[in-house]
Design a protein around this nucleic acid. Sequence first.
DNA 1: TGTACATCAGTGAACGCGCGTTCACTGATGTAC
DNA 2: TGTACATCAGTGAACGCGCGTTCACTGATGTAC
Lengths: 188, 188
Amino acid sequence: MRVSRDEKDKTHARIVEGAARLLRERGLEAASVADVMREAGLTNGGFYRHFETKDELLKAALEAAFEECYLALESRFEKETPAAAAAGYRAHYLSDAHRDNPGYGCPVAALGGDVARATEALKKAFGTGVNRIITALAAGMRGGQREKRDRAARELAMLAGATMIARASDPETARAVLAACRSKSKGR
Amino acid sequence: MRVSRDEKDKTHARIVEGAARLLRERGLEAASVADVMREAGLTNGGFYRHFETKDELLKAALEAAFEECYLALESRFEKETPAAAAAGYRAHYLSDAHRDNPGYGCPVAALGGDVARATEALKKAFGTGVNRIITALAAGMRGGQREKRDRAARELAMLAGATMIARASDPETARAVLAACRSKSKGR
DNA sequence: TGTACATCAGTGAACGCGCGTTCACTGATGTAC
DNA sequence: TGTACATCAGTGAACGCGCGTTCACTGATGTAC
């Protein structure tokens, strides 16, 4: 049964948002088209009225995940001083809540490993997302223009690396690595 | 045709070593049993004379990859001062060669994302490997016992995070992130 | 505004394919005497 | 040491299964008059 244009747009957004979460939880390959459609309250066949291939969905969902993550980061910088925003971001990134809920967390930590083996189009989208986060984070760092960006890049690398390690390790190791990263002095 | 015990042991080692490389290159799921056996010069059916399930192979191959990586790290500390060994490890970790050859590189960066969604047995093996690397690396860090370990954990998180991001990004972003991490001052 | 018809969002079964695993088989190795 | 037989490493076809994708179909929406 056909559905109105407005209804279709809403369906499309629902598919992308559900996929953005499911991909971060299960990985790019393990989240199937049927899973994604079920998540949106639909059946698998309708998928191809919205995307030509699964790869097209992956790109849209990755971009949506980055957008969500980026907006949350940006809003920190609107509410606090740059240094406090950066510190708050780190505290949240290294929290148990973030470690335990990849579906709603940073796509860098959740999907970096998968994107490394994906298409160039996905890598491009990933790189763009990484750059946006670094640019936002740089405002909370010390030093000159260049040094701010370098510090922000190192900060993101450490945050994503620590979260990935924590999620991939036994609880004791996870706890120790996150604790070590939380205790690092600010801005350096 | 049956093969001698010695021959079987060699075959077993060949399967595990080939798998250790293939897994880091393609991921835990994407490297198939048939691929692994072909890599060892065998056919798929014989796999089950060596392992009960694919999961058992994944554990053995992950441990082999960590062992390989760990021995290389350890040998640095035998040849140089601790500080120089740690600096050399970072330089190698952040090199273009390491970024472009995950199959022979650190399993933390190559497989962390996959292991995060794998069995507890694999997480246990991963955590053990991570701990060994941190312990070795700690010898090259400044500060007290506890501080050395914390610095080593942060260092590994940054190195693995940077490498994962570099592999998952467009070339320009990859270059920038690796350069930023290389320029970080030592031991801090 | 009403009416007739074309469009197309969504359904759910079916497709070919590659996966992990199983199986009957082969023949060299290991073992018992 | 030789001989007869059991074992089992490795082969390659076959299994059921879930995947991405295709398809004929349905019926409400959009469009032309």
